[in-house]
Simulated scan of single mutants.
Amino acid sequence: MAYGGYNNEGGGGGGGGGGFNVGGSQQGSSQAGGGSKYNDDTLRPVTIKQLLECKEPYPGADLMLDGQSITQITLVGQVRSVQPQTTNITYRIDDGTGLTDVKKWVDAEKADTEGANTFAPDTYVRVFGRLSSFNGKRHVGAHFIRAVEDFNEVNYHLLEATYVHLYLTKGPPTTGDGAAAGGGAGGAGDSMFVDNGAGGAGGVPARVLSCSKGAQNMFSFLHNSPGGNEGLNLAQISNGTGMTTREIINASDELLGQGAIYTTIDDETWAVLDY
């Protein structure tokens, strides 16, 4: 399925979410004779925090995120409450970044069937739908909701949403010589990375430089140490950096908040988020 710049190529590790072909071009324009813009719709992975922070240029305008219109979206979260009503089922969804209402409209002819197939609280679900705003309050009108069967999909979705946000706000990843991957040289201000000033391999994300010295030390150690997909655990980082357990925990909280690292096999094992 082509989503207009967001294409399901390879399927990704999460399944069902598609892969974001950020370099792709949006397809088509209006449908013949109808003036519809469905061909220009994009499907974008988002967090609830991003939805709550979308900008509305003027009343009735498309909501904007990272300078682009938000049309079709997909999110993954946990059901906190369910409110069945005559015309719709309203789910309160929490993805760890915020909460939002997701409304699944009920087909009157299938009301009994759809009402029986509601998702119970604490169930993880993936939602496909459209963000709507009415009287200043936002909700997601769901086209389709399904249960998440593999928890890896939750982590995959958050990483995918992070990657898309960084691509749209920072530009494509850079190669070793600083040129944007895929061609097209940009100025130093266009790069997502900056030299760490220590002569080490590669650089560090600019936002890490705003973190504490401990967080920078931890990031540099993770960045320059071979840890495979599982990353490095607290004991390895402590032995390699001389940092105390408390210093590492505080540093990890900073780096997680900046989206520079992520937890892997447990809450005390981290790896660098490779952009």
Score class of each variant (00 low, 15 high):
Y3D: 13
N7T: 15
G16I: 01
G16T: 00
V22D: 07
V22I: 03
G23P: 10
S30T: 13
S30W: 15
L43V: 12
V46L: 08
A61K: 05
D62L: 08
Q68P: 02
S69A: 12
Q72P: 01
T74M: 07
V76L: 01
V79C: 08
V82E: 01
Q85N: 12
Y91D: 01
R92K: 10
G96R: 06
D101E: 12
V102L: 14
K110N: 10
A116T: 07
T123G: 00
Y124V: 04
K137N: 08
A142P: 05
A142G: 02
F144M: 15
R146W: 14
R146M: 14
E149K: 05
V154W: 15
Y156I: 02
Y156S: 04
Y156V: 02
L158T: 15
V164R: 13
L168K: 15
K170Y: 05
P172M: 11
P172F: 06
A181F: 11
G187T: 13
D190I: 09
F193V: 01
A198W: 05
G203A: 03
S210H: 07
C211A: 13
N229G: 05
L234F: 08
G240R: 02
G240F: 10
N250I: 07
D253Q: 15
G257Q: 02
G259Y: 10
A260H: 15
I261T: 03
D267F: 13
Y275D: 04
